[in-house]
Design a protein around this nucleic acid. Structure first.
Lengths: 335, 335
DNA sequence: CTGAAAGCGCTTACAG
DNA sequence: CTGAAAGCGCTTACAG
């Protein structure tokens, strides 16, 4: 498995390694005879030469590697955005190296450390709770970094942010206007600001509406989403209360909740109305067409890679934040 | 963003870089005074030293990077296996670099080239149609390589293979024993051997059974899975033929087909029976509990990484193939 | 038009 | 117990 090197080409061609390097990199500065060029390209071809990017990286301090840390790559939302990131990155010549944090600060730190050792040119991360300090340190060292999906309080890190609060307000207003007697917000028991924005958007909109609507919260941990949601929905929907709407604030929550509904033969929107976050394949298998909040995944990926690339190439050194807008796709899952 | 190097530590500590290197790598061969050791560790800590793996890689020709090429990382099946691969790889100190081929040979080749330049220690690939030659070449160069999900004919490449034929036979027999009047196999119009194994397993089992059962095939391309399946299911199920079973040979096909059923109010298993491939979240949102073929994802990932690691460390140089067994999980989607 | 040489940040036999 | 030096595969200013 000994790979051909520039040295081998030089030896066979009877020229110096410098010359080979110039030819292979198509540098225009130094003009090299067409004969030599042709010979070098031919030899490279026949001995199957593949440049060693590691050596180049050591030289110019660029690996063309981008680190991506998400909570879990097997989560639909993250694998979808990873796919878009992959495409956008590739266009700029980067490849993606991935890691899943499982919302665990230690794992998150380990991945940062690992990627840092691998000399990635920059990182795109969905930061976990408590990662303020470690990320702040990176930013202070001018390490190219962009957050996605989430953001952190008290630190200034470049990132792509969804208008969580606004879209939740819009969605809540949409529900309020339908005069439900009861609206139930299904969320996480969490400290992550972007999720609290969703929750606050819901609460403040209800409060400000002045409408007489009863609200409840179902907040679950990460351990046993399906189990918790099912038992809590059972409590809440047990007496088949008329005119209730459920607001699922993430796709995972929606899958757990909708699964409960369908398996217990609770009809949407006849028995209960539903809105959910994110666009996932699974919704297609549900009897009703779910009204959902659509995040602009492709745009998020595009902006994230651009923002990172700008930092890497120092077009900009600002800790810029870009806010993108989600869209409420109205279908037939509410009365 | 200038990172601290071993040289900086050496300068501050007043020792040579060699000494620093020995200490940081905890080499036992050369005994170094506890004082020096302590000093070096302290300095490394305070100046926030992170070893440059690139430099190390150039030296020992190992990057601890593994390339993963799948058809599409946003596909549930691949993102799930990617997650398991990530975990298994991490345990052996590897990180994963990912790419999606979109079943496109040119993209596949480009990814192989890219990963090769990045000097990955090995690759785990779901090979696309027509990639025999390029993979064979890699194997001949003793490039550590493992195929997953699929395999190729006429070449000898180490890989993890599912017992596609056998599990399809079992599943078909399960359906045959239920005395359906009609069984419809929903598959791809493809040349990929593992998918043809599924199809052949279905056909030969029907033929050998001697039962009077009418069979049909719905074979779709990759362009417009949902559209094709829906229009073909409409043809086939239009007259509400009694006693029909559908066999979806992949999760994507199942999602498209089940979506059609649920949206058109065709009841499972009352109106039509269903079995499907793979275990995905989406099935939870379908009114019936789908009977499905469960692939041993974790085991597949485990074996793939092990097999690759063995090649990388030359414990073995054989083009080994490992066949794993899927399991038919019987639920209530068939009569 | 082409080559000798230094250097990127490490490791490691060898010498002392 | 510690250091000088060569080398991994490239790039690039400099010299000729």
């Amino acid at each position: 498995m000994k790979r051909a090197s520039i040295k081998d080409i030089a030896r066979i061609a009877g020229v110096s390694v410098a010359t080979v390097s110039y030819v292979l990199n198509r540098k225009e500065g130094q003009r090299i005879s067409e004969d030599t060029k042709k010979k070098i390209f031919e030899i490279a071809e026949t001995i199957n030469y593949v440049p060693n990017r590691i050596a180049k990286s050591l030289q110019n301090n660029k690996t063309k590697l981008l680190g991506l840390i998400v909570a879990d790559i097997s989560n639909d939302f993250y694998s979808s955005i990873a796919r878009h990131l992959e495409d956008k990155a590739l266009k700029l010549g980067y490849t993606l190296i991935i890691g899943s944090s499982d919302e665990n600060l230690e794992k998150f730190k380990k991945l940062i450390e690992l990627f840092s050792q691998q000399q990635v040119d920059g990182m795109i991360v969905a930061p976990v709770a408590g990662s303020e300090e470690i990320l702040q340190k990176l930013v202070e060292k001018n390490y190219p970094l962009v957050t996605i999906d989430r953001y952190l309080k008290g630190v200034n890190i470049p990132g792509i942010i969804l208008n969580n609060r606004e879209i939740t307000e819009n969605t809540t207003n949409y529900l309020i206007n339908k005069d439900f007697d009861q609206i139930i917000y299904v969320g996480y028991d969490t400290k992550l600001p972007h999720l609290l924005d969703r929750q606050n958007g819901f609460e403040s909109t209800i409060a400000e509406s002045g409408k007489m609507v009863s609200t409840k919260h179902i907040l679950v941990g990460l351990e046993n989403i399906a189990g918790e949601i099912q038992s809590k929905l059972k409590d809440v929907l047990g007496g088949h209360p008329a005119n209730t709407a459920l607001f699922f604030s993430s796709n995972k929550l929606a899958v757990a909740g909708l699964s409960y509904l369908v398996k217990n033969n609770i009809k949407v929107p006849t028995d209960v109305s539903v809105v959910a976050f994110d666009e996932i394949d699974a919704y297609q298998l549900f009897p009703a067409d779910i009204t959902y909040v659509k995040q602009p995944l492709e745009e998020m990926a595009d902006e994230a890679v651009k923002l990172l690339d700008m930092q890497i190439n120092q077009y900009s050194t600002l800790a810029k934040k870009i806010t993108l807008s989600a869209e409420l796709i109205i279908q037939n899952s509410t009365k």
